[in-house]
Design a binder for these strands. Structure first.
Lengths: 343, 343
DNA sequence: AGTCATTTTGCACGCGCGTGCAACAAAAAA
DNA sequence: TTTTTTGTTGCACGCGCGTGCAAAATGACT
């Protein structure tokens, strides 16, 4: 505590600029900024001298001024419109870590209220972000349009979701390949009456999981499985939907597996099966998810699910940011099925 | 899709400045910026004229330049070092919403790796954030010191956690009052052998929950309850700790209630009681939490817990940001006990 | 029409750094 | 030593807006 006050009192003036450092180190201001710039043309001796003076004065370059002068902010806006899915927390962690480790900062923009989306995007563009990232949200055309028409718009990246929109860069797992792997697993394990539990359908960038699953099942077994949609990726809503759909149903007509569009739905489904329908997982009804959230490996879920390579995807995202090109940057990744006990 | 391309093609030049608008509206550049500034001295007619020209040109003020010139960025850094607790997602949502609704933007800084903390804080200070907010994290003295010595440091706010540090503003629930309410409830319901499950102990800003609970119990019943600490607020770690602590114990010596420092621990505890110890909640062992995360009301937890008034706290935080004062801004809030079925 | 109080508008200067080129110094080749 | 090559440093100008004050315009009141 005493140390605190010492530090506070000793604190150097807050407004140290490159000029001050330049004076102290006997060089020009430009040399000072060079010292802080990687790969700049400066001799090691001078850099050393400058850095020492900078340390003594407590100088660090002002990123606002740098952004203004260079027109590159090294800042991205991350739009999130869904805070109910714990997987978002994992994504935030991975993305912020990958970005920060390579010099990028993240503006977190809450677009949970659809009305907030357009103003929030406009605001981000006023900060002159170098890119706008939409993470796996249920954004619609309106949001995309707002993002696109915003001033100084540079890159619009859709993360963990595919979009066929040509003005957009999407970085996601290959839904068709993933769903195909899941479907094959379900068939091999001998499940016969699947129920597909999907999230909300969006226009601009929906997941191709449900369609792929239904199509594959139709193709191989010539029947179309039942499917149910939930208006949000929320475990409680999923539990409600499962309960309503199945509670009055005779045991013989129950599905033997519920394939969920993601883990949030899958976890709610397991809860409903156990606590509202009074059945067992996987014995009575199996469940399979998508994402591999941390809870999936909890001993009382042991959820079989598909894991996305989030770290790779996040790193690729930074590659995209640092790339000057604008086209053909879309890319899909492959994850893997993590088999546990729920299916 | 066609509309997209139209928009893209019609897009106005990205570098519209106030000068362009000024020329179009036949006023000076300063008048243009006045039109965008609330409470500025400008006549309604002129403002109208300017705004119309601005709309046509698609002009919005550049916040980088504004921040540089005014030395106020309306930007805060939000430091998070714990992405395992779903409650963080709720906090992020509440904070970003409150901030944005009043014109503030949020820089999300991941300090999960302790080594990243100091550089990340330095970086935020290079962006000249108006405040640094630590949200309920296990930050230690080192992080506080880094935040404090950073250049251009303005306000350091500790959210949802109390700190006795004088250079810090803390906005949190009153842990003592809350724990007192919880303790009273536990006693009234006739529980006799509580086990307190705590998270990691930190030096700078720890929760006063455990100490208060133990002290109150000691005071009223003259016995000190057993307590266990977990190295992180992680449901799986809590489940492990509970299992290790209780699995070999004769039934008569088991606690009749486990009081948890927060919901992340409580949820893990319930899982462990049910699935690893094979006991029932609350019949064999009751559980009580803290935070009221969304999952707490899920039908298969029905967790009795203490809800923090996050929205009020977030709004107060913005009040603090907009306040010029620096001292005596600390404040504690009162939440309420949400009684469900787990205790 | 003239005076004065009150808005409303214009402007010089500064915020701190990047860009690109010119000037300079140092090391390499002649 | 002189010339060339390479490496290093300095600088004019601009990025877009805020601050504070002075000039101009407006309106109220004789």
């Amino acid at each position: 505590m005493t140390e605190w006050h010492r530090l506070k009192k000793d604190a150097l003036p807050a407004n140290v600029t490159a000029d001050d450092v330049a004076a102290a180190a006997n060089v020009s201001r430009w040399t000072v900024n060079r010292a802080f710039k990687k790969d700049a043309s400066i001799s090691p001796k001078t850099r050393e001298k400058v850095m020492q003076a900078a340390n003594e004065l407590g100088y660090l370059p002002d990123l606002r001024a740098a952004a203004l002068a260079s027109d590159r902010s090294h800042l991205v806006a991350l739009l999130v419109d869904d805070f109910a899915n714990p997987h978002k927390l994992v994504m935030l962690e991975r993305l912020t870590r990958a970005l920060r480790s390579r010099g990028w900062d993240t503006l977190l923009v809450n677009t949970l209220n659809r009305d907030d989306a357009a103003p929030a995007i406009a605001n981000a563009s006023q900060r002159r972000v170098d890119a706008t990232i939409l993470i796996g949200i249920q954004f619609d055309d309106e949001v995309l349009r707002a993002a696109h028409t915003a001033r100084r718009f540079k890159k619009l990246i859709i993360f963990a979701r595919t979009s066929e929109n040509p003005d957009t860069i999407s970085i996601a797992v290959d839904d068709e390949a993933a769903t195909s792997e899941i479907t094959q697993y379900v068939m091999e394990r001998g499940y016969e009456r699947p129920l597909y539990l999907a999230g909300p359908r969006t226009v601009s960038a929906h997941l191709k999981r449900k369609e792929t699953f239904l199509a594959l099942w139709q193709k191989h077994l010539n029947t179309t499985p039942e499917s149910v949609s939930v208006p949000a990726y929320d475990a409680n809503l999923a539990a409600d939907a499962v309960t309503i759909t199945l509670s009055e149903r005779p045991k013989a007509e129950l599905p033997d597996i519920i394939v969920c569009e993601n883990d949030a739905l899958a976890l709610g489904t397991i809860d409903a099966i156990r606590h509202r329908l009074g059945l067992r997982v996987p014995n009575d009804i199996a469940v399979i998810g998508f994402d591999d959230v941390p809870q999936a490996e909890s001993p009382n879920y042991r959820l079989t699910t598909y894991r996305q390579p989030l770290t790779d995807m996040a790193n690729y995202l930074v590659d995209v940011l640092e790339n000057v090109e604008t086209s053909d940057l879309d890319r899909t990744f492959c994850g893997r099925l993590v088999v546990r006990d729920s299916a």
